[in-house]
């Protein structure tokens, strides 16, 4: 499944192997969040997770990022246990909540992972300027987070996750707080970065068109406990602004919508 003996085949970026996840096991408030999840993500793939609220999408990202440990089963990232991948800084994460540090200016927030990786001051400054431009916040570097709107904060947190060019990006509804135009712009930028860097992306979203536009594959989860209901392959070729008006795009969104309707109906 992953590395061949000779090491010639590339290992999967993410390999989730019969994972169960329950919270507060043994207590009255025990929650079975995920149940028998099997999922392999190839290197360089763009995979979206979609499903009803509370079905365990954020939990799944946290398991991949080794911020949670599965109740049973195993998670490996680039062929190593998720823990080792975290220590090796193989992934960057955009949380559902921007989670900026109030006491750091926007620029310093973006530079935080770079500081922790011992980048030189000059390199940090260059990179954060580049990132600010990317998320269209040039001029806001010296602001404090509390001086920004919710969508602006979310863009800072995206810039922070991208700043050190991780091999794997875990993004939890990163564009949820953005207006439609900024959202489409950010989608385009994300695809550009993804293509240029060959990074792997696992992307949680509530938006059907967004998942169709961005992904190679869309994983539809059912609710409580979260299970992989279906995996939809998306073959839309090179994405351009016209893709959104392509009949094939329409077909894909319909397919995702029907899969979702099936799991929502089952709740």
């Amino acid at each position: 499944m992953s590395t061949a003996i000779g090491g010639t085949t590339r290992e999967h970026a993410v390999c989730i192997d019969s994972v169960d996840m329950a919270f507060n096991v043994g207590n009255d408030d025990e929650v079975q969040a995920l149940s028998s999840i099997d999922l392999q993500i190839e290197q360089g793939e763009f995979v979206s997770l979609i499903g009803p609220s509370g079905c365990g999408k954020s939990t799944m990202l946290r398991l991949i990022g080794d911020l949670l440990t599965p109740t049973s089963g195993s998670v490996s990232v680039f062929g190593k246990p998720a823990h080792d991948a975290r220590v090796d800084q193989d992934y960057g994460m955009v949380f559902q909540h921007p989670g900026l540090f109030d006491w750091r200016r926007v620029r310093a927030n973006i530079e935080l992972p770079l500081e922790l990786h011992d980048w030189s001051k000059a390199d940090r400054t260059d990179r954060s300027a580049e990132m600010l431009q990317l998320v269209k916040l040039d001029g806001f570097g010296e602001y404090y987070p509390r001086q920004l709107s919710g969508g602006m904060k979310q863009r800072v947190s995206i810039a922070r996750a991208l700043s050190f060019s991780p091999r794997l990006l875990l993004m939890d509804e990163p564009f949820g707080a953005l207006d439609e135009m900024t959202r489409e712009h950010m989608q385009g930028e994300l695809l550009r970065i993804w293509k240029e860097t060959g990074t792997t992306v696992v992307f949680v979203t509530h938006s059907i068109p967004e998942s169709a536009f961005l992904s190679n594959r869309v994983v539809v989860l059912s609710a409580r406990p979260g299970e992989v209901n279906s995996v939809i392959d998306v073959n839309l070729g090179e994405r351009t602004p016209d893709t959104r008006e392509d009949p094939k795009f329409f077909q894909t969104t319909t397919e995702i919508r029907e899969a979702l309707r099936a799991v929502e109906g089952a709740v």
């Binding site: 990022g65 975290r86 220590v87 949380f95 989670g99 540090f101």
Partner: peptide, 20 residues
């Protein structure tokens, strides 16, 4: 969330103390 972010950077306890 702030601790979780720092954990995602594999930050040490000392770094979390200093930065958060």
């Amino acid at each position: 969330d702030e601790i979780e972010l720092m954990r995602s950077y594999a930050a040490s306890d000392w770094t979390i103390m200093r930065e958060v």
